[in-house]
Amino acid sequence: MNYKIKHLVTTLAALLLLGGCVSTKTLFGDAEQEVQTNEQEQAPITQETAGAQGIEVEPISPEEQRALDTAALVNASENRFQASKKANAPRTRALLLEALSAYQNEEYEVALTLMQSAKQLADPMNSSAYVLDGDIYVALDDVDRAAKSYDNALSLNPDNFKAANRRALLHREQGEFEQALTLYSQAIESYSAHAPSYRNRGVLYDLYLGNKALALKDYQMYADLLTYQQSQTAQDAVMLTSLSEAQLKREARRVKGWLIDVERQVQAQVDNVARQADGTE
């Protein structure tokens, strides 16, 4: 062993023993359990405190740091819509479940008839029901009625991030980019772990508003949320999107391509600005 390292280890062992913190077996990894004689537990070693204590800690990679940040975001995210949404009355709910089943089976006219029956009941539909109503109209290519249904959903609950995300898409398709941006940001504010809203806002920044730097940021967040969802076990899965496992893999590959492309464009913009500053162009 290098003399300086050996001397450092010996000194550290002596200091720890004098302080009553550990035994020599614990220090060198021979004991199963730490012997704690202090009344207060020792604080865990972090990257910041390790340097001050002279302990070398291997730094984590940017990918690992992003994974930690994404997990923290998901765990800390408050789903404001989930906390504020109202349940449908039993009769309304029964019709809505039938309508949802018909919609999923692509029986859109049947689904629409069931939705109309639900609207005629004395019990009003909740915000989520109007999202389904809008989805059915989208499938029937009736954009105006779809937009009205999503607007109804948002009027009942502005925190309905799914309604905001869908309505923003219709705004974008109609060339109303600022309205779309406002609603995508509203969706993310209501639930900061909603992956599709990051994806769609990234597309808006990238292809319609020409802000490549903000597009790159949203694409990266979307990719990180997809990676997080893929890392979850079936029992502990946090559903950040409605994609299946196979769809998640395909989408992850696709967004990786977007990231490479937009990163290249952002770097080209930076290089161009630098050249102009140097007077080479």
Score class of each variant (00 low, 15 high):
1 M>E: 09
4 K>S: 14
5 I>A: 14
6 K>G: 10
8 L>G: 09
9 V>A: 14
13 A>C: 09
14 A>L: 13
15 L>S: 15
15 L>E: 15
16 L>D: 07
22 V>E: 14
22 V>L: 15
29 G>T: 03
29 G>I: 08
32 E>T: 05
33 Q>F: 14
35 V>C: 08
35 V>K: 13
40 Q>K: 13
40 Q>N: 13
56 E>A: 10
59 P>S: 13
61 S>V: 05
61 S>P: 03
62 P>D: 12
63 E>D: 15
65 Q>I: 08
77 S>F: 08
79 N>M: 12
81 F>A: 07
81 F>C: 13
82 Q>N: 13
85 K>W: 07
86 K>S: 12
87 A>N: 13
91 R>P: 07
92 T>Q: 06
93 R>S: 07
95 L>S: 03
95 L>Y: 08
97 L>N: 08
97 L>M: 05
101 S>W: 04
104 Q>P: 03
105 N>K: 12
105 N>Y: 06
106 E>R: 09
111 A>S: 05
113 T>Q: 12
113 T>Y: 09
114 L>Q: 04
115 M>D: 01
116 Q>H: 12
119 K>E: 14
120 Q>G: 05
122 A>Q: 11
124 P>M: 03
124 P>Q: 02
125 M>S: 03
132 L>Q: 00
134 G>K: 01
141 D>I: 00
141 D>T: 09
141 D>L: 07
149 S>I: 06
149 S>R: 09
150 Y>I: 02
151 D>L: 04
154 L>Q: 04
160 N>W: 03
161 F>H: 15
166 R>K: 13
169 L>W: 11
171 H>D: 10
173 E>K: 14
173 E>M: 07
174 Q>I: 00
176 E>G: 10
186 Q>R: 10
189 E>Y: 09
189 E>S: 12
194 H>W: 14
195 A>S: 07
196 P>L: 04
201 R>V: 11
202 G>S: 13
209 L>P: 09
212 K>I: 04
215 A>K: 04
216 L>C: 13
221 M>Y: 06
221 M>H: 09
222 Y>P: 11
223 A>R: 09
227 T>G: 03
227 T>F: 03
229 Q>N: 08
230 Q>F: 00
230 Q>K: 02
231 S>E: 01
235 Q>R: 14
239 M>E: 15
240 L>P: 02
240 L>Y: 05
243 L>V: 09
245 E>A: 12
252 A>P: 06
253 R>M: 01
254 R>A: 06
254 R>E: 01
254 R>V: 00
255 V>H: 03
256 K>P: 03
259 L>I: 15
260 I>M: 10
261 D>P: 05
262 V>W: 02
268 A>H: 11
276 Q>K: 15
277 A>E: 14
281 E>W: 12
